[in-house]
Amino acid sequence: MKSPIINYLLAFSFLFFVESFAQTKSIVSSAGASGNHSMLIAAVEATEIDEVLEKSGPFTVFAPSDAAFQRFSSDKLKQLMTSNDKSKLKSLVSYHIVAGKLTASRILKAMCRGNGKASFTTIQGKKLQAHMEGYDIVLTDPLGNTARIIQADVSQQNGIIHEIDSVIVPTSM
């Protein structure tokens, strides 16, 4: 009969193996495989930000779901994707990315230090505000648009993904 300590060690080893295996994909590979972020991945690839997200990090990506992009404006997204000038699309995509690994716990700690609010600088260069509404972490862009984190802390090899329910924008597009 195995001792309880051996059982705990085996269980811990299994959990460590599963967690390590789950983090072998990059942010782009994982989001692409999710089946829920095809529009985001198309925009990331169109702006060539995928090369950065594949090879470096860590990054935190606030990833709008496909449903969030559909609510954003299909006409506006189509215009951004088909334009020869990808600067506005790149600005939009990079506004959803923060350098470093911001887990939900770190976001909450920053909000505690900031009296309920926290500010993060995106790789686009603009600030993204975070606050709580009930049990939800809510992000607010400079125009006052909000997005809720609906799935937090999807750890990847080179960062973390938080799925959000809306597209946030750095400036009027």
Rank of each mutant, 00 (worst) to 15 (best):
I41D: 03
G114W: 00
I161Q: 00
N84L: 13
M1E: 14
H162T: 07
L9T: 03
S38V: 06
I150N: 05
V93C: 11
T24M: 11
A33T: 05
N84E: 14
T122G: 07
Q70G: 02
A104H: 03
M81I: 11
M1H: 09
G144L: 03
N145V: 01
S30H: 12
D66M: 07
S172E: 15
A68W: 01
D153H: 02
F14V: 11
P170A: 00
R106Q: 13
A46T: 04
F17E: 01
D141P: 10
F62P: 04
K127Q: 11
Q129K: 12
I97V: 15
R71S: 14
V18G: 00
D66R: 04
I27K: 07
L102N: 05
A42K: 12
L143F: 11
H162Q: 06
G134K: 10
S119C: 11
A152D: 11
V61N: 02
I49Y: 07
M111D: 02
R71K: 14
S83W: 08
F59H: 04
L15M: 12
A110N: 13
F17W: 04
I137A: 05
A42I: 06
K126I: 01
A22C: 07
F62Q: 05
S73W: 04
F21Y: 14
C112P: 02
S105M: 14
K55E: 13
A118P: 10
V28N: 00
G114S: 00
S74I: 09
L102E: 01
N84Q: 15
L80G: 10
G114V: 00
S155W: 06
D136N: 10
M1G: 14
E19H: 11
A22M: 11
S166A: 15
V169N: 08
Q79E: 13
N84K: 13
S172M: 15
P58D: 09
F12E: 07
